[in-house]
Structure formats: C-alpha cells, structure tokens
C-alpha cells in the first residue's frame, strides 16, 4: 500500500512540472509586459518603479530563465506578491480564500451524495417506472441548466419575491451585533443558496451515474446468487449491490473536482463569496499575473491531490486492489 502510494506520488511530479509550464506559458501569451499593464493601472508608478519591478520579476531576462526563477521560487513555497495595490503575498491571499471554497464544495458535495445516491438506487431498482422517468427528465434539465441562471431564479424567488434568504455575501451587515447562535444562523442562511445551487449540476450528473452504475451491478451474476439464497430485495440492493455500485462513484468524485473549482468562479461572483473562484476572477480583471499563475497552479494541484485521494479511497474500498 505504501509502495503504491509512493509510486503514485512520484507519478505526479511530471504532471506538476507540466502544470507550472502551461501556467507560465499562458501568462506569457500576453502581448505586452505584465509590468506595463500594472504600471498602466497605477498612474503613480514612474519608469523607475517599472524597472524595479522588472528586476524583481526577472522580466528583463529571457523566458526560460524567467520560468526557472519562477519555478524555483514556487518550489520553495514562494508564490510571489500580488500586483494589486495591497502587494500582499499571493500565498496569503490563497490561504484566505481556499478554505471558503473547500468548505462550500465539501458541503455541497455532501448534500449531492446524500440526494443522488438514493435517487440513483431508486431509479435503477425501479427502471422505467414513473419515478425513474421523472428522474431522467430532471437529469436532462439539470445538465442543460446554466448554473448562474438557476442562481438568478433562486435569488429572484427566495430573496426578492419571498424575502426569506439574503441575496449575497456570507454575513449580514449587523452580523457582529448578533449573538453567537445568531451569527451561526446568519452564516447558515447565507450559505443555503450557494451550497444548494453549486451542487445542482453535480446532482444531475451524480444521480445519472449512480443509476447506470447500479443498473450495471444489478445484472451481475452475484446479485442472482444473493437472491437465490433467499435474501429480500432490500438486503440484495443495499448489502450486495450498493457497495459495488458505489466504487465507481469514488472515481467520479475525484474527477468532478476541477469542475467544482471551475464552477466556483460563477457561484462566488454571484453570491459575493470571498473564495478561490472570486479571488481568481478579481485577479483576471486586475490582470494580476502572479496571482493568476498562483491560483492556476494551486487549483491544478488540488485536482491532482483530489484524484490521488480518490484512487487511494478506491484501493481501500475495493478488496481486489487492497492487497497491492
């Protein structure tokens, strides 16, 4: 197991190098120098500031050298400083934003799993029933629904029309004046819409996947063996079929990470949530190159870690892989 883990981690190294390379390349597609842009945005910066910056970022050197400088800094955990007014270290900004996005996505994934697994199991065990057909329709609509539009509709209904939930943000204006319980409730209220909506698309995908995974398992021979023992349908479904059907879901969870992180841009922008997505979006608008590169590298590392974690979980959950 340990060996497996080590080989897998070793396999990630070339990918990580590739990730930094692509991120670097993307940014250097830019026609002008990033410093020009930065000084453009900041009228106070004179030519000497520009020169200092060029030195700091090594922009006067050829591209391969620049890449080397940047990567060796990265390797030491130095992501550089933001181009924006505050000039704060990129890593600090990411450290603030990351937990918010992670928490949001973990919560919505938890909800998705709690809903999608029962839906998928039901549809598969009641194939072609009314409920199954309704699920199929729901899934198709879910796939086609633009998440930001769904968010707008929900805001329109729950916040504007009914006035039950706040439109955006994580805290009310009077948050600090509230009691402890009140504060928790306040944040919870702000989280309901973003959490539910960002899970919506995954919900459709996950229920569909769960359904076909379950259908696949149900027609396996060992399910007939279980029935031939005289087990009731519940036991057959939950003890014999579900366990097997859940295995591919683990992989899907790993694969859905980039989508979730990518989707956080829109969700966090709509609901004004200070997470990675909004941080990235702001860095885009500000052409804050160090931050853009930092977030790109960080998000793809998250993806890699997520896939690795999923593979490990699979290896633990599937006895056929456990002993390797």
């Amino acid at each position: 197991m340990l060996r497996y883990l080590l080989t897998r981690i070793a396999g990630l190294v070339p990918l990580l190098i590739g990730v930094t390379f692509v991120s670097f390349l993307v940014i250097n597609l830019a026609p002008g120098s990033p410093v020009e842009l930065m000084t453009d945005l900041n009228p106070k910066a004179g030519p000497e500031v520009q020169q200092r910056l060029e030195k700091e970022y090594g922009l006067d050197k050829p591209l391969p050298v620049q890449y080397w400088i940047w990567v060796s800094k990265l390797a030491r955990g130095d992501f550089g400083r933001s181009f924006q007014q505050d000039r704060r270290p990129v890593l600090d900004k990411i450290k603030e934003a990351l937990p918010v996005t992670l928490a949001l996505n973990v919560m919505s994934l938890a909800i998705v799993l709690c809903v999608a697994i029962p839906i998928g199991v039901y549809s598969a065990t009641h194939q072609y029933s009314l409920g199954d057909r309704a699920t199929t329709v729901f899934v198709f609509v879910g796939f086609a629904m633009p998440s930001f539009w769904f968010a707008l509709l929900c805001i329109l209904f729950f916040s504007v029309h009914l006035g039950w939930l706040p439109i955006s943000g994580l805290r009310s204006f009077d948050h600090n004046a509230l009691s402890d319980v009140g504060r928790v409730l306040d944040i919870a209220k702000h989280l309901i819409l973003p959490v539910c909506i960002s899970g919506f698309t995954s919900l459709a995908a996950m229920s569909r996947y769960m359904r076909s995974s379950m259908l696949e398992v149900i027609r396996q021979d060992y399910i007939n063996t279980a029935r031939a023992k005289g087990l009731d349908e519940r036991t057959v479904t939950f003890r014999h079929a579900l366990r097997n059907a859940l295995l591919p879901i683990i992989t899907l969870l790993g694969l859905s990470i980039p989508g979730l992180i990518g989707g956080s841009v829109i969700m966090e922008s709509i609901f004004a949530i200070p997470g990675m997505g909004r941080l990235f979006f702001q860095s885009i608008l500000a052409r804050d190159y160090p931050l853009i590169m930092g977030v790109l590298v960080m998000s793809s590392m998250l993806t890699l870690i997520g896939n690795l974690a999923a593979d490990l979980m699979y290896a633990v959950a599937d006895p056929r892989l456990r002993k390797r």
Partner: peptide, 8 residues
C-alpha cells in the same frame, strides 16, 4: 485535464 478548464 489537471486544470479546471474554466480557470484556464
């Protein structure tokens, strides 16, 4: 595929 495509 490592990159969240929307970020890229």
């Amino acid at each position: 595929l490592c990159f969240p495509s929307f970020f890229l």
